[in-house]
Structure formats: C-alpha cells, structure tokens
Computed example of a mutant assay.
Amino acid sequence: MSGTGPIPGGRVRHGTGVRSTRAFPTEEHPDHLDPFVLFERFYIDPDAGFPTHPHRGFEIVSYMLEGGMDHEDSLGVAHTAREGGAMRITTGSGIRHSEFPADGAACTGLQLWVNLPRDRKEVDADYADAGADDLPTAERDGATVTTVVGEGSPLDLHTPVEYLDARVDGAWTWEVPEGRSGFVFGVDGAGTVDGDPFGVGDALPLTEARPVDLVADDGTDPGGDEATAAEFRVVCVAGEPHGEPIRQRGPYVL
C-alpha cells in the first residue's frame, strides 16, 4: 500500500452491542497489515460489553482513552484499565476473557491485534498491564509523545512493535523504522498527514520505512477568523512483518 493516501475508518457493530471505528480490515482497506491483524477504536456503552469469550494465536493491546474497562480472564486476572493505561494479552495457545465498562459509565479506547509468528502460536497465554504513569511521555520537536509499546514501556510483545500516542502541536515528523510496516490513526482533532487532510477515524497504512509529516490545524477558519483548534492527536504504530499469512477466524488467528 505504499503511496496510498489516508482512508476513512469503517463502522463496525459487534454482536454484543459494542460500536467500533476500524482502521483495517475494512471495505476501504480489506487486507491485514502484517504483522497487524486489526486495529479499531471501540465505544462501549454502560449496558454493553464483551461477555467471556475465547482467543488464541495473537496478542492484544488495549489502550484506554476515556473511562475505565474491567477485564477478567481464565488466568485468574481481574483488572480495571483506566484512561491512559494499557493492557497486553498474549492469547497464545488459548485464553478466555471478558471486557465491560467500569463504574456503570461508558468507555472508549483503542485495540490492536498483533499476529504471533508461526513458531510461537502455542506459547502460554500471558497478561500484563501498565497505568498511565507507567508509560513514558516525552516532549519531542512538535509533539508530546507517549510510548504505549516500545522503548521505555513496561509492555512488550513477541513481535518488535513501536506504538506511539502523539499530541501534535504545530508540526511533527514520525520516522517509520527500517524494515517495518504500520499505520497512522486519527484519535482527536484534525490536521494533515503528508499534506493530506486527516481527521478522527482516518488511517494511513504504511509498508515501508520513511518519514511521515504531521501538521495540526492552526485554528484559522476559511474566512480568516481565529477559531479554537482542537488538539490533533494520532497514534503511530509500526511493527516487524513476519512474512506469513494472517488467517483470522473470528476470535482466532490461525
């Protein structure tokens, strides 16, 4: 998909009543993005959620944007992830878990599925979490960047992955690491990515190492009057491809 511009996210409604904006796979981008199986922003209303269900063959990173989400699993883990916190689940040979909004209030977050390489499909299931204070945040030239997965984060995966939450103030350039593929996803506000308009739910798939230029809207409307610019917030994710087919069968990645 090198050279492809931004694509709008697809709307998904899960059978449990949970709504999502999915970056891929969608009608606009029907393929997986090796090593990534899917990526979406979920919205869980107070009366919705995911009852206990199985997974195997991949890893899950859930990163909370607003509210809290209660997680329980067959490993005996019970944890509530709060805004700015993240959970990593290695489903491996199999795990069962549930996800529901905490405290009777709605929640929203981001969920990434990362394929496990063929020789690690049957690893033991595992779980880890990190609160907002555990994830490193640094001021970079043009952005404030939190590392969800990658250098300095306590969360790691069986696949080398860089997962950044960037709040762009002005202009910032993200360098896709050599030998990796990935994507940019719009979380809040608006701006441009490589000169193309980019907003909430938009995605830019990337399949080669290169710089990606992100610029926040300056808050000026077309009539020239000053307006309040919403924060331009994106996530930038890149991982090392496995070079293996991704065979998703519902909650399983074979």
Rank of each mutant, 00 (worst) to 15 (best):
T4M: 12
P6Q: 10
G9W: 03
V12C: 05
H14F: 14
V18L: 07
V18F: 08
T21Y: 03
A23D: 08
P25G: 11
E28G: 14
H29A: 11
D31G: 11
P35Y: 04
F36Q: 02
V37R: 08
V37A: 05
E40R: 08
E40C: 07
R41F: 03
D45Y: 04
P46W: 08
P46R: 10
A48V: 06
A48Q: 13
G49I: 02
T52H: 10
R56W: 09
G57Q: 08
F58N: 00
I60C: 05
I60N: 03
S62W: 01
Y63C: 04
M64G: 07
M69C: 07
D70I: 09
D70T: 12
H71C: 03
H71S: 04
E72R: 15
S74A: 09
V77L: 07
A78G: 08
A78Q: 12
A81V: 14
G85N: 04
A86Y: 00
R88S: 05
I89M: 15
T90A: 11
S93Q: 13
G94D: 08
G94W: 03
G94T: 09
I95Q: 02
I95V: 15
R96F: 13
H97D: 06
F100M: 15
P101N: 10
D103L: 08
G104M: 04
G109V: 01
G109A: 09
L110Q: 07
L112D: 02
V114K: 09
N115G: 10
R118H: 13
D119A: 11
E122R: 14
A125R: 06
A128I: 00
D129E: 15
D129G: 09
G131N: 12
A132V: 09
A132I: 02
A132N: 06
D133I: 06
D134M: 07
D134V: 02
P136L: 01
E139S: 12
E139D: 14
D141F: 01
A143C: 06
A143F: 01
T146Q: 14
T147A: 09
V149W: 01
V149Q: 00
G150Q: 04
G150R: 00
E151Q: 07
G152C: 06
S153E: 05
S153F: 00
L155Y: 00
T159D: 08
T159R: 11
Y163E: 00
L164M: 06
D165G: 03
V168K: 10
D169S: 13
D169C: 00
W172F: 15
T173Y: 10
W174M: 02
E175R: 14
E175K: 09
V176H: 02
P177I: 04
P177R: 04
G179V: 05
R180D: 01
F183G: 00
G189W: 08
G189M: 08
T192I: 07
V193R: 02
P197D: 14
F198G: 03
G199I: 03
V200E: 14
L206C: 05
A209N: 06
P211Y: 05
V212N: 05
D213V: 14
L214R: 06
L214P: 00
G219S: 10
G219M: 10
T220E: 11
P222A: 10
G224T: 09
G224D: 11
D225Q: 12
A238G: 00
A238L: 01
E240N: 04
P245R: 13
P245N: 11
I246N: 03
Q248W: 04
P251T: 12
P251A: 09
V253E: 08
V253L: 06
